[in-house]
Design a protein around this nucleic acid. Sequence first.
DNA 1: GTGAAAGCGCTAACAT
DNA 2: ATGTTAGCGCTTTCAC
Lengths: 338, 338
Amino acid sequence: MEKKATITDVAREVGVSKTTISRYLNGSFEFMSDKTRQRIEAVIKELNYVPNSVARTLKSKRSMLIGVVVNTLRYQVAAQTVTGIHGVCTKNGYGTVVCCSDDDPDKELQGIQLCLNQQVDGLIIIPCLESPQRYLELCQQGIPVVLCTRRIQDWPYGCVYVRHDELITSMLVHLKEQGFEKVRFLQDVNNFHKNAMADAFQKGAEYLFSMPPEESVVLIGREGSLVPEALEQFLLEYPGRRKAVCAVNTHTLFLVLKELERRQIQIPWDLGVCGYDAQGWSELVYPGISSIRQPMDQIGITAGEKMIRCLQEGGMSQGHTALEGTLAFRRSTRQSDP
Amino acid sequence: MEKKATITDVAREVGVSKTTISRYLNGSFEFMSDKTRQRIEAVIKELNYVPNSVARTLKSKRSMLIGVVVNTLRYQVAAQTVTGIHGVCTKNGYGTVVCCSDDDPDKELQGIQLCLNQQVDGLIIIPCLESPQRYLELCQQGIPVVLCTRRIQDWPYGCVYVRHDELITSMLVHLKEQGFEKVRFLQDVNNFHKNAMADAFQKGAEYLFSMPPEESVVLIGREGSLVPEALEQFLLEYPGRRKAVCAVNTHTLFLVLKELERRQIQIPWDLGVCGYDAQGWSELVYPGISSIRQPMDQIGITAGEKMIRCLQEGGMSQGHTALEGTLAFRRSTRQSDP
DNA sequence: GTGAAAGCGCTAACAT
DNA sequence: ATGTTAGCGCTTTCAC
């Protein structure tokens, strides 16, 4: 367990000052003799020297680290986004510090602070707060921030999101076309992002199905424990009408399908079903479940690229990028043939 | 954009030396007057002072950071493990630096080095190499290492894994009992972990089904592009015999089911199907797919706890923990009733 | 009980 | 082309 070599060791061995070594490390060999350069190169290899980035960060205020604060890693959705971010960062020589907020504002703050404390050069956040204030303050401190996945009003810097309102509206139009008469959105928790989705749903349901807002959305809880009740109730409501539910995320969709199978509800006869699906399994579930899919990895990649760009150019991140999701219409929302 | 307060600011404001503040920060108030302590407390709050952990790390060689190097984040499996690790670390005041190896030994090394460079206090790794050497060297450098998910021979320190051989064997016994006569394991890539699983399958297939090893396993590629061919071939082989396939992971299982649906193959009549499933969707796919499930979050939690413990006690990580996976036998591997 | 002083390993003026 | 010097913000002997 030999001590790791430091810049001093290298300097001594080469016979120059630390400054010269530091210059070499930072790529300013413009005014450096070829001989010195080669000598340094050799000694570094020989001593197996790796610059200590903690010391480097302390002095230079640049850590080559990017902070990533996400709501969760548990589900495919965020994990893939992180994968995308991570890939881009690594490719550009940046490391990542990943924190989870669990959609708790306090935890989010802790995560952000942990990152700041590590002197991250930038922050990519899936925000759990609707108000941009907290994130704006970061920018005022000079830390570039890219927001992703969730859309925040009045955010003047870079962000990447998916147009859920369009996706949801298209799905509603499809349901209408297929002859459904009443619809219900199964929302798990009350956060601004899910609320925005529910909102789009309510608007569409009001316009297309003449449903009052309070009738088109139901909350089923973080773990989806209320899914059975929610379904039971919707099945009893509007007797004789053709009804369809839309699940807010993969997990909810899964629970819905499980419950419907348990109760032997016939899809789409007794009930039409659609929802967000990150994995594609909905395609395989009888009779083929219509789904909404977001390009998660693309969100991550785009967010990462935005961050890298603004880091290279200096300044804040820029530009809102709206990514397209995709809809798959399958037999679970067809009223025609089984 | 006010400058962040430093220990010097606090010391000046309180009217003591940096040393005293440092003592306060490190919790050695034993020899400190109550008055001083309270005064410091107040000033810290007033100045909104947060100790700079980079400086702290540089001096003390402890970063309160744990490095996590996983093969991927793309899939549920690893992402949940990371979630588990992250939760435990955060709870104990540690941050995490996450790196992906993509199962590439070079990238893994890069990840490890990035972590070391950030002076992580410990490393939790899903190893992509079968040989313990690289990981042992870390320990020799004094960095505690916990290996997880994949089992490495001759690893004397802490590790957490699942007994895949038992799970696979049980599944094979089940297949035998259900009257299947030939089986095939669909492996995606050739790494030591997947090979160990394939190995267990081959052993079991030889013993229970009298199949030579080369007949019981087939490689279908990282993206599973060979799934159609593999299935086609297996369906043609052993005419008249009852056959079943077992997929090495969720993605492969998904592809298998998709292809079988496309070809209108009747499960389990034409072919029995089972495999690893991380999400539970297999339950919903007709006719109910038998599955193997690993307790991913538990792996992460256990690994995290092992790390924390050895960090608190000083010394290396200890103990092999084998976690139990779970089997679900469903109609996709029943020969009796549909 | 508290403080002075010497760094940790590196960078960045400012020389030369 | 290269070196001198003064720190970054903190910890840690050792001294009082």
